[in-house]
Design a protein around this nucleic acid. Sequence first.
DNA 1: CGAATTTGACCAGCGC
DNA 2: GCGCTGGTCAAATTCG
Length: 179
Amino acid sequence: MPVMPNNITQEYSSEFVANSELDWISLLYGSTKYDDGNLASSSPSQAQIESELAEANPGKSKAKLVARTNKKANIPPRIEFHTKSATDILDDGYRWRKYGHKSVKNNIHPRSYYRCCHHTCNVKKQIQRLSKDSSIVVTTYEGIHNHPCEKLMESLIPFLKQLQFLSSFQNIIQPLHPC
DNA sequence: CGAATTTGACCAGCGC
DNA sequence: GCGCTGGTCAAATTCG
């Protein structure tokens, strides 16, 4: 099963482009789509990120940066991952609760809506297969997690406990060996 | 039995 | 104003 990055940030996205499982990424600042399927970028910051993505991803010409023409303010950034996978749900380390399932226009595959289970986190994601290519799973993240990845923490906890134990041990030894 | 998922209803935005 | 579409809610259902 392909594994998605643990923390979805703008900085992280260009790093993840190198993952061979990934087809391409779009950074979305909105959802305005035109009939021909194209999306446009407008703000300078988005253009800047787009060029950075292009530099980080020379072989993947499809990487696009998108602007939302929506008038609403404070729209969280959206990042779209295109992944070739037989399974719809990609393991990104976070726990998600499904809250919706909808068939969308011009696509035979329904779209699933998920929300992060963490009580203080409002990150959402949508999962949908491409109508043109059913092997491609499109995962769109909206917002940034404000908490650590649970799976990562689970694997780190034993190590941290060991560190804590060793540091307490060092506190006992240090008085005996000041150097 | 509690948690997670499913699914129909509802709402808001947009184009005509 | 109306219909279409996407997004969300919440009750019902399923699952472990």
